[in-house]
Simulated assay, not measured.
Amino acid sequence: MAISEYLKSLRSVVGTRLLFLPGVTAVVFDDAGRVLLGRRSDDGSWGLIAGVMDPGEQPAETVVREVFEETAVHVVPERITGVFTQPPNTYPNGDRTEYVDISFRCRAVGGEARVNDDESLEVGWFALDELPPIGDLTRRRIEWAQLPGPAASFLS
């Protein structure tokens, strides 16, 4: 998985110890109402496009950057749909993280969905009634993004 220079510099100091990081997740819809998913290269699971903010970067800028870097799709963030802390995670290399995630509903405005970096094995558009196997949190994020209005959802 790709790692920013900032995160590399932190890891050089703290090693694999737990880092508390700001992240974003994109729930991207196209004009047909399909959702954009990627199949991760590290574990083969399908999920939404996500990433870590860089210093000085706004969350909406991060979500636009991450979607393009991973899928070559251009998006416009429409609204925040969820804010919560994810459970701690340990990567195969031993790095431990816990993310504060800001989930955005986004609209695709250009580009052609394709694998655009080494973080995904596949990317594609899926009708909501034809989703591949996804986790409960991914499903919940998609449901939140379909709710009407500007309100965000929170885990408790």
Rank of each mutant, 00 (worst) to 15 (best):
Trp125Arg: 03
Phe154Gly: 09
Leu128Glu: 11
Thr97Gly: 03
Glu130Ser: 15
Thr138Tyr: 02
Gly111Asn: 04
Leu131Tyr: 04
Trp144Cys: 12
Asp136Gln: 12
Glu122Ala: 09
Glu98Arg: 15
Gly94Arg: 11
Glu119Trp: 09
Gly94Asp: 05
Ala127Ser: 12
Arg140Gln: 13
Leu121Tyr: 01
Leu121His: 02
Ala151Gly: 09
Cys106Glu: 04
Phe154Asn: 10
Ala127Glu: 14
Phe154Thr: 14
Gly135Cys: 10
Thr138Ser: 06
Ser120Pro: 00
Glu130Leu: 14
Trp144Lys: 06
Cys106Ser: 13
Gly110Arg: 11
Asn93Glu: 00
Ser156Cys: 07
Asp129Leu: 05
Ile102Thr: 15
Asp118His: 11
Ala151Val: 14
Asp117Gln: 00
Gly94Asn: 09
Val109Cys: 09
Asp117Ala: 00
Leu121Ser: 04
Glu119Gly: 06
Ile142Ala: 01
Glu119Arg: 11
Asn116Gly: 00
Glu119Lys: 06
Gly149His: 13
Asn116Asp: 03
Arg96Pro: 03
Phe104Asp: 02
Leu137Asn: 04
Gly149Tyr: 13
Leu137Thr: 06
Trp144Glu: 09
Ala145Gln: 06
Ile142Ser: 02
Phe154Ala: 11
Gly110Ala: 08
Asn116Gln: 08
Ala127Thr: 04
Gly111Ile: 06
Ile142Tyr: 10
Ile134Pro: 03
Gly135Ile: 07
Asn116Leu: 01
Val109Asn: 01
Tyr99Pro: 07
Ala127Asp: 13
Val100Ala: 11
Ala145Pro: 06
Ile102Ser: 05
Arg105Thr: 10
Ser103Ala: 15
Arg141Gly: 01
Ser153Cys: 12
Arg96Tyr: 03
Asp136Trp: 05
Leu121Pro: 02
Glu112Thr: 15
Asp118Gln: 12
Glu130Cys: 12
Ala108Asn: 08
Arg105Gly: 02
Leu147Cys: 06
Arg105Ile: 06
Arg105His: 11
Pro148Leu: 07
Pro150Ser: 14
Ala113Glu: 08
Arg139Ile: 00
Arg96His: 00
Ser153Trp: 07
Arg114Glu: 11
Asp136Thr: 08
Arg96Ala: 03
Gly124Pro: 07
Asn93Lys: 09
Pro148Asn: 05
Gly111Pro: 00
Arg107Glu: 14
Asp101Cys: 08
Asn116His: 13
Gly149Met: 13
Glu130Asp: 15
Asp101Lys: 12
Asn116Tyr: 09
Ile142Trp: 04
Val100Leu: 14
Leu155Val: 12
Thr138Ala: 08
Tyr99Leu: 14
Ser103Tyr: 01
Gly94Met: 09
Asp136Tyr: 06
Arg139Asp: 00
Gln146Trp: 08
Arg114Ser: 11
Asp129Val: 01
Ala113Lys: 02
Pro148Ala: 08
Arg141Thr: 01
Cys106Trp: 05
Gly94Cys: 07
Leu155Trp: 06
Ser153Val: 05
Ser153His: 13
Arg105Lys: 14
Leu128Gln: 05
Leu147Thr: 13
Ala127His: 12
